[in-house]
Design a binder for these strands. Structure first.
Lengths: 222, 222
DNA sequence: GACTCCCTAGAGTATATACTCTAATAATAC
DNA sequence: GTATTATTAGAGTATATACTCTAGGGAGTC
């Protein structure tokens, strides 16, 4: 693999593990056993690394959320969208953690992220629309659909922070993708009241798959 | 005012304005025109300042969310809870911005914050319970009520980040309390499907008060 | 072999940051 | 007044961080 790509990969890995704030360019270089000079040969600064990682994230989610317009939406589609979005969130999980600081440090990123959010919100709204068309949920007025979509977005983008700050154990054990996907349970909770009788049971069954299992908190020895 | 209190106040102010990450102890001292030595006479380190500010935040919200058990809940109560929570969020808005880093740096804070979240979730659940008792919303099973409360929490705690990252203008104009309170619109959106006919119109009218006004984006000169 | 171009090493730097240390001053107690 | 304690100033420090600079290796080309 090219050094440039190795840098991007290692950065993402370290950022996800320790948080962007705790990872310096020297750390990244050391992790790859290359010199700082080498790293700076490939990237002008840390912001550029982050920006490029973001672009990959953006591309991934855009790809996932490319809603086909020519056919009806199925429950499998819905499952796919939900799973994919949380997969993306997982792979680039450092990003939302320090979002505000990152956007403050890089105007390009701020602009792109705003547009990215708008695209995501539009996609979610479209999904609601197509769910109504498919008879999965009752149709709702435009205004409500938009507000609901925004709530879905807020729940999705904040679920990880909730897990990391209020839920997970203190230890360095961290978080698992499986836990993260319990966010799907929360998202589907939002849709319950709008489900049509025809689909109600099926969606509830889907939701049930993501129900958080109450994890017993290990008593700390000592 | 005592120097100690001045330090807490100035820290909160600067943290809110610029973000904790961008505010050093030297900045705080300079802002107050005192020496760093003086600051460190009153606080052992930056973490202690943050911890003390958090305790004030916690106390404030606990006070707001002290739900009286001896009487029925009214719409005015609900309004008060919502307004208060967003007021608190505003006054200590730096906190959620760097939450994960802050909790990683201070085990006391992590423990306290987790308990704080649990108390807030319990309070929200109780509010739902009492809203059902008061006939404002239809009663729901325990499980659903808990999941709904968590969604309310996720929306509330993420609303500001949404505004700052995806919505607000780039400029240093920043955010206003009024904008922040549009989060109430989103929270009430969550409750719409559960409203009883008797209260539906009234709650919708309340919600309407917080509807975001589409702000025209100023074209940038130049 | 010489030239060029891409890549890399590694020492080095300017700046920032959290925090310390000493000495002096103000406040209080007796 | 004197002793004691609380408060403050301000210079200073150890460490970290993002980033630079110079020198050179390796591979291909003529």
């Amino acid at each position: 693999m090219k050094t440039r790509d190795k840098i991007l990969l290692a950065s993402l890995e370290l950022f996800n593990e320790r948080g962007e704030r705790n990872v310096t360019t020297n750390h990244i270089a050391a992790h790859l056993a290359i010199s700082p000079g080498n790293l700076y040969y490939h990237f002008r600064n840390k912001s550029d690394i982050i920006y490029e990682i973001f672009q990959a994230y953006e591309k991934l989610v855009d790809y996932y959320l490319d809603i086909p317009e020519d056919r009806a939406l199925t429950l499998d589609d819905l499952t796919f969208y939900l799973e994919s979005v949380f997969d993306g969130l997982w792979s680039y999980r450092f990003f939302h953690r320090d979002l505000e600081y990152l956007l403050d440090s890089d105007p390009r990123l701020r602009r792109d992220y705003r547009e990215f959010t708008e695209r995501c919100l539009a996609a979610i709204t479209l999904i609601f629309e197509k769910m109504a068309e498919a008879g999965i949920i009752e149709p709702q007025p435009e205004e409500l659909r938009r507000a609901m979509s925004l709530n879905v977005w807020l729940v999705i983008t904040n679920w990880m922070a909730y897990l990391k700050t209020a839920h997970a154990a203190d230890g360095p054990s961290g978080l698992s993708l499986a836990e993260l996907k319990q966010g799907i349970y929360q998202v589907l909770t939002l849709e319950i009241p709008y489900l049509t009788p025809a689909y109600r049971e099926r969606v509830l069954a889907l939701r049930e798959k993501y129900r958080p299992r109450r994890v017993a908190v290990e008593p700390v020895a000592g």
